[in-house]
Design a protein around this nucleic acid. Sequence first.
DNA 1: GATGAATGAGCGTTCATTCAT
DNA 2: TATGAATGAACGCTCATTCAT
Lengths: 192, 192, 192, 192
Amino acid sequence: MMNKKEKIVHAAIEVFREKGIEKTKISDIVKIANIAQGTFYLYFPSKLSVMPAIAEVMVEKTITAVKNEVQEGAAFTVKLTQVIDAIFKITCDYREILALIYAGMGSTEHIKEWETVYEPFYSWISQFLNEAKSSGVIRDSIHVERTSKLFIGLVESAAEQVYLYDSKQDDQASIQKAEVLEFLKYGLGIQE
Amino acid sequence: MMNKKEKIVHAAIEVFREKGIEKTKISDIVKIANIAQGTFYLYFPSKLSVMPAIAEVMVEKTITAVKNEVQEGAAFTVKLTQVIDAIFKITCDYREILALIYAGMGSTEHIKEWETVYEPFYSWISQFLNEAKSSGVIRDSIHVERTSKLFIGLVESAAEQVYLYDSKQDDQASIQKAEVLEFLKYGLGIQE
Amino acid sequence: MMNKKEKIVHAAIEVFREKGIEKTKISDIVKIANIAQGTFYLYFPSKLSVMPAIAEVMVEKTITAVKNEVQEGAAFTVKLTQVIDAIFKITCDYREILALIYAGMGSTEHIKEWETVYEPFYSWISQFLNEAKSSGVIRDSIHVERTSKLFIGLVESAAEQVYLYDSKQDDQASIQKAEVLEFLKYGLGIQE
Amino acid sequence: MMNKKEKIVHAAIEVFREKGIEKTKISDIVKIANIAQGTFYLYFPSKLSVMPAIAEVMVEKTITAVKNEVQEGAAFTVKLTQVIDAIFKITCDYREILALIYAGMGSTEHIKEWETVYEPFYSWISQFLNEAKSSGVIRDSIHVERTSKLFIGLVESAAEQVYLYDSKQDDQASIQKAEVLEFLKYGLGIQE
DNA sequence: GATGAATGAGCGTTCATTCAT
DNA sequence: TATGAATGAACGCTCATTCAT
């Protein structure tokens, strides 16, 4: 049994994916969440104010997906491929929502919250890069915190482009992924 | 004196930047454009249908900015720095709109148009990379068309992060730019 | 053919009388006015903001009623009786609305407007008293402007009391009127 | 420590004064009363049904104020002045509420209750006038019960006008009071 | 008695769209 | 073409009321 707030967040994700954010009505969300219209307003003042809570869930989903995909003990390049795979998958599955989160939501009101919300994902990637740096697999001049953000930005925007331009052709995804991998290998200065 | 259509497009850009797309009303646009409410519908069927026209203007602005910044005859690394500078500047100035355009706008209806509209910018970057590739400045394994998109995605997302996370500290911009340059130099495999 | 604003004001008066102000919905008003719901908001921002316009109409109605009732050339006491009759009639017919207007509308926002709106009525009574004062019918110590307000306050509150306490008994009205007349005769110091 | 019912009544007075009756929500009242939302309904069925209890408190306040002001053994004219002073003070302090009570509240449902509630005040003034009548200070033709209502109506409407039209100028109050006193002296036919 | 989270009917308000001028 | 007053369907939001605890 979920509590009401969680119900709203999950219902919102579901409806946003189906109808897009602009076309989603609060009445759609409460119908899916199976709560009364007024109850929504006990937890959120508006449709957009659900976004930070959604972002939190999305970051969790992403981290979980990445962790599940990455094979403990594999070579760094393999792991890199797996990270890219995971991000591509999540990005394609939830692209409308991620696009909004990533773009900073159009409105600047919640921006400082994203920082906090995204932090765990940046941390994970930082840690991932740091290990590689320590074992000499990637170049020593890497600044891991900053690069983690560039890394995620690069992979996510690449994933979005696949959807954006080549949504019909599945093989485009793998070509694009390969390209990103290649670019990252050079960018990180992998020595294996 | 602008014609009515241009007035609408420029007014829309102005209002979208101020209020965000969701909160912008057609009445806001016509007020700024100084035309009658009904006149809008003589040129555009809906608020979102103005977006491709906006994108066109934005791409023009971007290409112009890049061209103006890049110094003919300079070394590739210098030019690279200049391209990054120009994109950072444009991205920061118009980030709300670019974010939306780039993210595909949440609604999938106009996606195919973006492809066409963005094409000139991708072309310019492709050409830029191609010259470098021909003269052996960057690694030969680069696929210029695909990389041009990764390139733009990387730089734009980096620029967005500066705005997103460190809006107050101006020096963050230059650090972030340096990091991107470093990453690109490795990613492109520059040999100078 | 009335213009839309007048239609709204008259419809509002009608509905307020029937249902009371609190229970009146804007949808009731527009139904009677025979206009679209949205049209209301082109002229008034809220239900209560119609009140000043209503007050204006009510003051007109009152002055007209008084003028019609008062017999040119009659003795002052007769005229006084007629003024009282007219105010009682109007007050009883429109008591819910007048009560609100007179009480200052509960909210203090429109108070300064009442001053302007009521002015014509105060003027008329002032003039009425002034003539009587000039011809020596009422005591010389009367300050006509101030007394006109006391006069109206006295007669209106008396009329309200008839409605309030004795709404069923019609003869109460005439007794109350007689009492007011007596009180006013003394109060004004009539010498006839 | 007040009991819950008293808490509600006093909270309602406070909120009604601040926001007006129409804009007052039950949730505002319970917040001030520091009780739970549901508790309200254990004592009152609706917002307006609190009004008679408020009126009772107001009448008590008024009678107390008048009694405190009036100096035992003073001449009638002096007492009259003191009564006027007291009513002016109370009316100005609680004008929004008194206006509503006095005007019959727009809704006719509780009217008969006001009669009962106001009775003590009318009685007191009747008694006050009766004594003056017995001692021959005021004219013999006075009908004390009816006149008590006219008396109160006159003084209260005068007090409201001070507030309404001249809220800034404090000396207006004393001029208005003097005018009322003069008017009453004549109206009652004082012979001193 | 007391609570306050939950309810949902109902209302205010918006704003894209139309069309007579 | 251009206008902008008028429209009314659609939606956000409120808030009196309930009821399980």
